Simulated scan of single mutants.
Amino acid sequence: MRRRFLIAVPLLISGGVALAADVNCRNPLDQASMNICADRDFKVADKKLNETYRALSAKTSKAGRDKLQKAQRAWVSWRDAQCQLNTLGSADGSVHPMVYALCLDQLTQAQTKLLDGQLHCQEGDTSCGGQ
């Protein structure tokens, strides 16, 4: 059974329903649109993370996959808790979904870079994943 490391980002849309498909993320005009665009950016980063994770998992030994899975699950919990802490100041505002998604996006991109480094180790680097 494969697990995806996703979380849902709630979109608080004030003043009516905004259709996500109608939002121009090159020039979002209101907070609801900015929230949607930030969520889209996070989803792109999360997709890349999952692709990198799967590639690294396929390259590792059974013991390595078990440790990778354990580390990634712990990282997802940490990321979510860290973003809850980082965005506490906006928790009651309409900007919160955007700020939270931006935090998730930033930390997810950093984790993808870390896993990608493990995926593309130099030969003989015993500190690198893929064991």
Rank of each mutant, 00 (worst) to 15 (best):
Q31N: 10
A55M: 10
D92F: 10
K48V: 13
Q118W: 00
H120T: 08
N27T: 11
Q122T: 13
Q72H: 12
R3C: 06
D46S: 10
K62S: 06
Y53H: 09
S61T: 12
G16R: 13
D125Q: 05
L11Y: 11
C25Y: 10
C83L: 04
V23P: 03
A18W: 01
Q122N: 11
Q69Y: 08
T112V: 00
K67G: 10
V95S: 14
P10E: 09
C128G: 05
Q118S: 00
Y53W: 04
Y53R: 07
G124R: 01
V95C: 07
T52W: 02
S14Q: 08
K62C: 00
K43E: 05
M1F: 05
C25L: 06
N35P: 11
I7M: 12
I7H: 09
Q69V: 12
V17F: 13
D66Y: 09
R73Y: 10
K67V: 05
L49H: 01
R79L: 09
C37P: 07
E123P: 08
L49A: 07
K59F: 07
D39Y: 05
I13Y: 02
R40G: 09
K47D: 13
M34F: 13
K47Y: 10
A20T: 14
A101Y: 05
G124I: 04
R54F: 10
G124L: 02
G129S: 07
P97F: 14
K113Y: 07
R3Q: 10
N86D: 10
D105R: 15
Q131S: 10
L85I: 07
S90V: 08
L88S: 09
D46P: 00
A8T: 11
L104G: 02
V23F: 07
W75F: 13
G89K: 01
S14K: 04
L119H: 00
N24E: 05
G64W: 04
T126I: 07
R54L: 14
G93I: 01
K62A: 08
A58K: 09
Q118L: 00
L11D: 12
N27M: 13
L29N: 14
T60F: 11
W78H: 06
P28W: 15
L6S: 06
I13N: 08
A20G: 03
